[in-house]
């Protein structure tokens, strides 16, 4: 895999890479990893999103990287200032699982599925339709994206590795 670095994105975090570097986030459960990229410019950004909507925030200085609506706006803005062209942006998604089967804290039921919906809705506002996604289910995922090839590698504990 070449000379590039592997850039890691934490939870509620967002970063941009250019080829030959690759970008990775680990342990996605109900959180969702959104990759946006411009393949011919070989630039990509990854956001590790926790919650669907920033209107849920109950804090004064909200972290824009935490919510689907604000994180995707930021991601597009940062990509464009790093040489990506907005019309050429493509998306790949993974995550949004339901890790535990239960119904306790009612506003957080199906948070994974709600994250997936919120991301798709926000992307469609920007006229971006995801190229590929691996979402839902009940397993954790670690993902790695290579901006040179546009491939997203997904690893799980039980199902091994897959590429979308």
């Amino acid at each position: 895999m070449g000379d590039g670095k592997l850039v890691k994105v934490g939870i509620a975090d967002l970063k941009i890479v250019k080829s030959p570097d690759r970008i990775k986030t680990s342990g996605l459960g109900s959180c969702i990893g959104v990759v946006l990229y411009d393949l011919s410019k070989q630039v990509a950004g990854l956001a590790h999103i926790m919650l669907p909507d920033s209107s849920l925030a109950r804090q004064a200085n909200k972290n824009e990287y935490k919510y689907a609506d604000t994180a995707i706006d930021k991601l597009i803005e940062k990509l464009c200032s790093n040489g990506a062209r907005k019309y050429a942006l493509k998306a790949k998604l993974a995550g949004g699982a339901q890790m535990f089967e239960f119904a306790s804290n009612h506003d957080l039921i199906r948070i994974g599925a709600r994250n997936v919906q919120a991301v798709q809705k926000k992307l469609s506002e920007h006229n971006i339709i995801p190229e590929a996604m691996d979402v839902g289910g009940n397993c954790g995922r670690t993902i790695e994206f290579d901006p040179a090839t546009g491939t997203l590698t997904i690893r799980t504990v039980y199902e091994g590795e897959s590429i979308i």
Partner: peptide, 22 residues
Amino acid sequence: LQIDMAGAILSHSLIEVSQMTD
């Protein structure tokens, strides 16, 4: 009970408090 990645298991609780804190 869940047997899976530590992050995926723990982030479940982080999401619960994430509306009010980082």
